[in-house]
Amino acid sequence: MDQKHILLAEDDEMLATLLKYRLEKAGFAVEVARDGREVREALKTNRPDILVCDIMMPYYTGIETVDYVRKELQDNLPIIMLSTAGNETNVLNAFELGADDFIAKPVSPSELVVRINRLLIKTRA
């Protein structure tokens, strides 16, 4: 079975480390990007199977990243957004731009794993 490649865009080091550990433990190959620029570079060099992206990031926000993926790269890459609870406007914007799923912070790593698996199955289908 191929190991799925996840690009995790999260500027909080601790949370990124924790999620990376949890996702690797769940069997994914995780690449962490700390800001919007790193996300764009990573997307150009190595297309992931799924993108887990925080909305609030330096340089390019998660919404801009979604817009970049959908409009400039014209890629239907599955995208899961991470955002603090109550940030409804950003979430709606992200969905309008083409995000596939959304998880509110604080994140439950187990829930994230479940959502990623479900989205990958859905994409594969």
């Binding site: 601790m14 949370l15 924790l18 949890r22 912070k105 604080p106 994140v107 439950s108 790593p109 829930e111």
Partner: peptide, 15 residues
């Protein structure tokens, strides 16, 4: 500090 920060960022069984 790390644990206090993590408490804010994670939920569920991780918390």
């Amino acid at each position: 500090q790390v644990l206090l920060d993590l408490r804010k960022d994670v939920s569920g069984d991780a918390r």
